[in-house]
């Protein structure tokens, strides 16, 4: 089975290969150039997302009380977590109040989550091209503030 998503190293190598090709083939056809530029840009985008995903995973792991039910770093920029005793919806509302938008609930996957013992759902962070490390920092600061609430 081939790799579905490349890792950071794979993305960096792919971007470098495409850039080398573009430099080495200034006379190539417009179509060939467009194809390699697309490859380069996509690899750069993926590279940024993979780096940010790694940063998110590390930072989330450091927030006291955060549980990462999957236990392994996901392959894409989507991370599910819990912050007991707070219910996922409560966490999402309190993050929203701090300017951080996340999803909460069962993400249209109730049977899967039931089978994983997560019928109450999870909080889910999704990274996009528009996110950066500061967004991750803001998320984690928001979670620390929630975790500090004395019920």
């Amino acid at each position: 089975m081939g790799e579905v998503l490349p890792d950071v190293k794979g993305c960096a190598e792919k971007a470098a290969r495409e850039l080398d090709w573009l430099k080495a083939n200034p006379q190539a056809s417009r179509e060939e150039w467009a194809s390699h530029i697309r490859g380069y840009v996509l690899a750069k985008f993926l590279l940024e997302e993979e780096k940010l995903r790694d940063y998110l995973w590390e930072e989330l792991s450091r927030v006291p009380g955060v549980e990462l039910p999957l236990g392994v770093k996901p392959r894409a920029g989507i991370v599910s977590f819990l912050l007991p005793p707070f219910y996922p919806y409560d966490v999402a509302v309190l993050l929203d109040q701090q300017g951080v938008a996340v999803r909460s609930g069962t993400h249209c996957a109730q049977p899967l989550l039931d089978s994983m013992g997560l019928s109450q759902g999870t909080v889910r962070v999704s990274l996009g091209l528009y996110n950066n490390a500061q967004d991750v920092d803001r998320l984690c600061a928001g979670l620390r503030r929630i975790a500090a609430i004395k019920l």
Binding site: F86, D90, V93, L94, Q97, R145, I149, L151
Partner: peptide, 9 residues
């Protein structure tokens, strides 16, 4: 608003 939710919880 944050404290309102904290109060409700």
């Amino acid at each position: 608003s944050f404290d309102q939710y904290t109060y409700l919880m």
